Amino acid sequence: MTSNFNVFQAWELWKKGRPLELVDKSIEKSIFQSQILRCIHVSLLCVQQNPDDRPGMSSVLLMLVSEVELPEPKQPGFFGKYSGEGDSSTSKQQQSSTNEITITLLEAR
């Protein structure tokens, strides 16, 4: 995968049925094409908007080493500014978060 690809491009290629365009040309025609597609599929599941839709690490491992059927990924989170499309409730939400931090300084007596 080239460094110019991002989640938006991966999602668009997945929706268009062309996910192998994400793959480096040197391995594109490999015998491991089904595993490559599976890795892309699992990757899209890992970037779902809702954390409850994202698989845990043990599930990811199971998905990668078995032939278990994978759920269809939904539009990824972090889709934001790269696309003018998407579901209207997501596009109307403000994409921000508030982080709080406490700093404790230790001083000698």
Rank of each mutant, 00 (worst) to 15 (best):
37 L>Y: 04
31 I>Y: 02
74 K>F: 05
68 V>Y: 15
15 K>L: 10
2 T>R: 15
79 F>W: 03
45 L>D: 02
31 I>D: 13
54 R>L: 06
85 E>Q: 14
2 T>I: 08
95 Q>V: 00
50 N>A: 05
90 T>R: 15
22 L>V: 08
23 V>H: 06
43 S>A: 15
11 W>C: 07
25 K>L: 11
41 H>Y: 03
41 H>L: 09
3 S>E: 14
3 S>K: 10
58 S>Q: 13
47 V>Q: 00
4 N>A: 12
5 F>R: 14
64 L>F: 07
8 F>K: 02
85 E>T: 15
87 D>F: 09
61 L>M: 14
24 D>W: 09
34 S>M: 05
50 N>S: 10
75 Q>W: 02
43 S>Y: 03
96 S>E: 13
94 Q>H: 05
53 D>C: 06
97 S>N: 05
93 Q>S: 13
33 Q>H: 02
48 Q>P: 01
17 G>V: 09
30 S>W: 06
35 Q>S: 12
61 L>T: 13
80 G>T: 04
93 Q>F: 03
98 T>P: 02
100 E>Q: 11
59 S>N: 13
68 V>P: 00
77 G>N: 06
6 N>I: 07
27 I>F: 02
47 V>T: 02
30 S>M: 06
104 T>F: 13
32 F>N: 11
52 D>L: 11
18 R>M: 12
66 S>V: 06
70 L>M: 08
58 S>T: 13
77 G>F: 04
94 Q>L: 10
20 L>K: 06
12 E>T: 11
80 G>K: 09
78 F>T: 01
70 L>I: 01
99 N>P: 02
99 N>K: 15
27 I>T: 06
23 V>K: 04
62 L>M: 10
47 V>S: 04
61 L>F: 15
62 L>V: 04
65 V>K: 13
70 L>Y: 11
63 M>R: 05
15 K>H: 01
45 L>E: 01
91 S>M: 14
84 G>Q: 10
45 L>I: 05
41 H>T: 00
90 T>S: 11
92 K>F: 08
32 F>I: 01
78 F>K: 12
62 L>P: 02
74 K>T: 02
25 K>E: 15
84 G>N: 14
29 K>I: 02
69 E>W: 10
34 S>P: 04
80 G>W: 01
80 G>M: 01
47 V>W: 00
98 T>E: 10
24 D>Y: 08
68 V>A: 10
47 V>L: 10
78 F>G: 07
38 R>D: 01
73 P>L: 06
68 V>D: 08
78 F>N: 11
93 Q>C: 08
12 E>C: 10
40 I>F: 03
54 R>W: 04
96 S>T: 14
51 P>T: 08
33 Q>I: 06
67 E>D: 13
84 G>S: 14
92 K>S: 05
61 L>N: 12
25 K>V: 09
41 H>W: 12
47 V>Y: 00
19 P>G: 03
80 G>P: 01
39 C>Y: 04
6 N>Y: 07
78 F>A: 11
74 K>L: 07
59 S>C: 09
76 P>K: 07
95 Q>E: 04
36 I>V: 14
84 G>R: 12
33 Q>S: 12
21 E>W: 01
36 I>P: 05
42 V>T: 04
76 P>E: 07
79 F>M: 15
58 S>E: 14
7 V>Q: 03
62 L>W: 09
33 Q>C: 03
50 N>I: 08
56 G>M: 11
103 I>G: 04
86 G>Y: 00
12 E>R: 12
54 R>S: 03
98 T>G: 03
